[in-house]
Amino acid sequence: MSQRREDPDRSLMARVEARDADALAELYDRHAGRLLGLARRILGDGGEAEEVLQEVFLFAWRSASSFDPGRGQVLTWLLIATRSRSIDRLRARRPASRPEIRSLEEIAEGPAGPDDIEAASSGKQWETICRAAVGQLPADQRRALELAYFEGLTHQEIAARTSTPLGTVKTRVRLGLMKLRERMRPYWESGSDGP
């Protein structure tokens, strides 16, 4: 199942750790579009998403040593950093104003086909596995996860938004993550096998 392949991001991270700004620039070229897409999905199209992108790359620059190659890929690490910073800002904004959040349907059926994506091969592999993993989730589990992931809604808020009992929401979130984890596992393993 697992295949050994050189992830160009890893060598870039090693160079970033050694304070090579060109390596950070390359990392930016490879992933900034996707990370900014995620930040905008959460925060809307204002300048805040760009601020998050800047924070994430400065974080990568300063904390490159905290990246653990044994636990997922560089892209995953950057996405987690982008998402958590974006959600923090979203929460800090509430309840004063809520951004115009694009509908889930628009995102789910969005135009981001493989041809739109300029990511390098490891990004494409990641994308393929993710899309398959998410696509195989039952619709109600996927919706619960998307509300939590992109809007930072709590169990209670998801229950209210979807008119679903709280216990059911908790189960959907748990089962959804369990399934994603099983489907993502081959990808993690292909990047983190020992010799």
Binding site: A32, G37, R40, A112, A119, E127, L177, M184
Partner: peptide, 20 residues
Amino acid sequence: GAATALAAGVPVATPPPELK
């Protein structure tokens, strides 16, 4: 890590040229 799979469906954005 698994939750980041959800991000794969998000359209890739084009960062403004000066941001880099």
